[in-house]
Write a protein that binds this DNA or RNA. Sequence first.
DNA 1: CTTGCTGCAAACAGTTTGCAGAACT
DNA 2: AGTTCTGCAAACTGTTTGCAGCAAG
Lengths: 142, 142
Amino acid sequence: MILEKKKGFHDFTVAKGLRSTRQRDVILDIFLSTHQHISVEELYLKIKSSQAGIGYATVYRTLKLFVEAGLAREILLHDGQTRYEHVLAGEHHDHLVCTGCNSIVEFEDETIEKLQNEIAARHGFLIKSHKMEMYGLCANCR
Amino acid sequence: MILEKKKGFHDFTVAKGLRSTRQRDVILDIFLSTHQHISVEELYLKIKSSQAGIGYATVYRTLKLFVEAGLAREILLHDGQTRYEHVLAGEHHDHLVCTGCNSIVEFEDETIEKLQNEIAARHGFLIKSHKMEMYGLCANCR
DNA sequence: CTTGCTGCAAACAGTTTGCAGAACT
DNA sequence: AGTTCTGCAAACTGTTTGCAGCAAG
């Protein structure tokens, strides 16, 4: 799966006439090795600690490329930080965010997805994407 | 309804030992006179054009008070602007956002709310709030 | 008259951008 | 060689804060 993503990104850069650089490889490797929902800062720190000498700006620029290439997705939660999560083909999930420990649990519910489509249709909307987040306390923090 | 809200805010300030000021009255009036989902900047401009001579900082500070007082709610969409919407007692709704014309349609669906609670329970979460946004094209923009 | 509130400007945090040099192709 | 990419620092945007003066109680 990681290999697929690497290939996906490679194909994307080729198609777009972009270059393959050491920095992009490192950032992709580290991004793929992380768990979901990493913030730019967290990612930057991981990269920094790998001694690769890569700047903040490059991390930002590269993450945007990942989004364009379809392998990452931006998520905005309720703190001022943009996070990125992996896009897994065909899969969609939503988030349960614990306001106690900031942990994030993912879930997927087909019935909700269906209802969303019905609601959209009722309003004449053509849905491209959606997001749903629930905030509360997880089992540990209650 | 507007009167109720004014009363609500008044009660809140009294309960918290806060003061009633000209600025807060003006901002509340103008906020209540707006449609849903106003951004801080939009609100500030309306206030400015009313010649009240109120600063940006006061608008921010006052909106936070409204949230605390339970009459406004912060919403974060996919542009860098924080918006505020009116809270109507006991009501909860979600948003359909048109990426074409930026219009926002609200909806409410009880079944989804129920499903959310079930999902939360399944993961041991105690839900305090949630938000759901769907992005796509509205009937006009398709 | 005491304390909270305001306006201003400066500070801040996260993100973006201009540019000179480095590095792909 | 030609052009894209990088790192740095400076710029930007939205939001918050410190402070002196103002105003509500």
